[in-house]
Simulated assay, not measured.
Amino acid sequence: MVKRRAAIVQLSAVILFVGVLSYIITTYQLVQVAGNSMQPTLRHQEYTVIHRRKIPKRYDLAVFDFEGQLIVKRIIGVPGDTFTRDGTRLIFDVSHMSETVTYTVVVSDAMAEQLPASGIIPLGKYFVVGDELQISHDSRTLGFFSRVNFRGIILRVS
């Protein structure tokens, strides 16, 4: 009886360990940053942790799969945000913490041609930019990023 109880305790411990390990492996991912588009927030070759199960929100550093590579960008436009376009200027009026904030972003000529004069960011789409605007390839040239390609949120910046 004692041996059986000890075996059950050991089996329970192994199952618990495997469960916790499985949760960690499927929830978190350690990645190394490649490139300078998120400077000064993230630096080239810096290590950071992605949380794969978090829901993306405005201002999050989000990781997307873009043409087979993981890229990090800051979310500034979320589904439901309204925008107007004046030439290549895209103006977002967003409600945030009981106040309205206006962002003006200059998009590429090609991107401006694809956007209506006014609209709403569609469900499952995000407008993202790199922190280093001069060198970042982001929504200003590539368009909205899809939730389908979303891989996680940066948890820790070292």
Rank of each mutant, 00 (worst) to 15 (best):
L16I: 15
T100L: 05
G130T: 08
Q69N: 14
I15P: 04
G119Y: 07
V72D: 02
F127C: 09
T104W: 00
G130H: 04
F66A: 07
I50H: 04
N36S: 10
I154H: 05
Q45A: 05
S158A: 09
V101Y: 07
G130D: 09
I135C: 05
I135L: 09
R52Y: 01
T27I: 03
Q29L: 05
F145R: 10
A112R: 05
G152F: 05
M1S: 13
A6I: 15
R156F: 12
T27A: 03
D138T: 10
Q32A: 04
F145D: 04
E132R: 13
R156T: 10
A110G: 01
F127G: 03
L90Y: 02
F83Q: 06
M38C: 11
T48D: 03
S146Q: 10
S108M: 06
L142Y: 08
T26Y: 10
V2K: 15
Q45H: 12
V72T: 14
N149L: 07
S12Q: 08
L16H: 06
M97G: 03
V18G: 02
L70T: 01
Q39E: 15
V9F: 12
L142T: 06
P79C: 04
H137A: 13
Q45K: 14
V78P: 03
E132I: 00
V157F: 01
Y59L: 13
M97H: 13
R5I: 15
R89G: 00
T88K: 12
V129R: 09
A7F: 11
A110M: 02
Q114N: 13
R74M: 06
E113L: 06
R5F: 10
V106W: 04
I76Y: 06
T84S: 08
L21E: 09
T88R: 14
F83G: 11
S158W: 09
F150T: 12
D81W: 09
D109L: 08
V14A: 13
V129P: 00
V72C: 10
Q134K: 14
I75K: 02
M1G: 13
I121V: 15
F17K: 03
K57S: 13
L21Y: 15
T141R: 12
I55Q: 14
G35H: 04
V31D: 11
G19H: 05
